[in-house]
Simulated scan of single mutants.
Amino acid sequence: MAIVLGKPGVDGLSKAVGVLREWQYDGAPMQLHPGDLGWFWRSGAEATAAAVRTWSRDGQILAVGLLDGPGLLRLTIAPDAQRGEELARQLLEDVTEPERGVLPKGKVNIEAPMGALVQDLLFEDGWSADEPWTPLLRDLAEPVKDPGVRIEAVGPEQAHVFAAVHRAAFDGSRFTDERWHAMAAGLPFADARCLVAYDDQGNAVAAVTVWSAGPGRPGLLEPMGVHREHRRHGYGEAITVAAAAALQELGSSSAIGCTPSSNVGAVATYKSAGFQQRPEVRDQYRDA
């Protein structure tokens, strides 16, 4: 059977989320997580469906891609198919020919699991390695310490608090209460938690969303940020520890995060919260 490129539509998102859950395992290369789709869902179900691509054979999904911006495809592949030549060559054709409806002309980036054959083919086709990112992982087999600050779970009534911290933590953020509600209505949020940390004066100082992929699988922190007016007080470490504890409660085997290697402060925050630095990963890009 031929490998078919498809758009799942809103009704097909549950199947894409399901296979992404199944493909997460301890020791896997840093890859697209159901939580990445969950965070994208802040733009709504229709927008999420429009941004997802699947590659299937005989109804079985072999690869899932998320167009996380106009020129970035975040791609992952079933563990037993990552070195498959037929799939890799199909992926190469589909991502390099704009008429296939995956990536446009001009400068574009692809994130794919390290070691996947499609990476080799992209390099052979003239693609280059982009700036490094640092994955970080915390094993959750042992108890997680108390974060040392007040942590509250965010529900619909506190959406405005999370949104305000996010805007204050990320330059250019346009996150709103409405986007929180859209995210919370998404399929992956059933296995997610939003947390906010408070200082001694009751100010909301940091926030995180954690996404479980199911018991015994790695869970994702995305996003995690500290209010720009409350940095360098340990709140990044505190909210990251609280995130690990929340994932442990959800049954996750480990907690994972990823940040640009140039963001040395974020790398240090994760490490202070008990995360171990893993080998760097890089997107691949094609110049215009």
Results as ranks from 00 to 15, higher is better:
K15Y: 01
A243V: 03
I61H: 03
L136F: 01
L221G: 00
D191I: 01
F162H: 11
P223K: 09
E249M: 12
D177M: 03
Q82H: 14
G65V: 01
A47N: 12
M1W: 06
D283T: 08
A244W: 09
K7M: 07
S212K: 11
R278I: 06
L220G: 02
W41C: 12
L72I: 14
G126S: 10
G202H: 11
G9E: 03
R228L: 08
S56T: 12
E152G: 08
G27H: 04
L137S: 10
A255E: 02
W39C: 04
Q248T: 11
D171Q: 12
E178A: 15
T134R: 13
V108F: 04
Q158L: 15
R232C: 13
V149R: 02
L92G: 04
S173M: 08
W23C: 03
A182L: 14
D191Y: 12
S56I: 04
G12V: 02
A238Y: 05
G101K: 08
W39I: 01
V210F: 05
R167N: 09
L250Y: 10
A2P: 15
E93D: 15
L221P: 00
V208Y: 00
V210E: 00
T96G: 02
T134K: 00
T259W: 00
G126N: 08
R232F: 08
A51W: 02
A190K: 13
V19L: 07
G106N: 08
T240I: 10
L62Q: 11
L20W: 00
F40T: 01
G27T: 05
V4H: 02
S173R: 11
E22F: 09
F175I: 03
G59T: 12
A255V: 07
L75T: 02
E124S: 15
V205D: 04
T269V: 13
G18M: 08
E97A: 12
A206R: 01
A242F: 03
P8E: 03
D191W: 14
S14L: 10
A49Y: 06
A184V: 07
L136C: 11
G38W: 03
A192Q: 05
D199I: 07
M114P: 06
A206D: 06
T209K: 04
R167M: 07
G84H: 08
G35E: 09
A88M: 04
A63D: 05
A192L: 09
A28M: 11
E22K: 15
Q277Y: 02
W39S: 03
F40G: 00
A2F: 05
E152L: 15
G251Q: 12
V64S: 05
P79C: 11
H227M: 01
S14H: 10
V118L: 00
L121G: 11
G219A: 11
L20P: 02
G106K: 12
P156R: 14
R193N: 08
G202W: 13
Q82W: 14
A213F: 10
V241F: 05
R228I: 06
E86Y: 06
S272K: 15
V118M: 07
L62F: 06
R57T: 10
F175Q: 02
P223R: 07
D177R: 15
P8H: 07
D68W: 12
M224L: 15
V281T: 13
A243W: 05
A246Q: 09
L66Y: 06
D139H: 14
R150F: 09
P104N: 07
Q248D: 05
R138M: 10
G65T: 05
L121Y: 14
T209M: 13
G35M: 04
S253Q: 12
H160F: 10
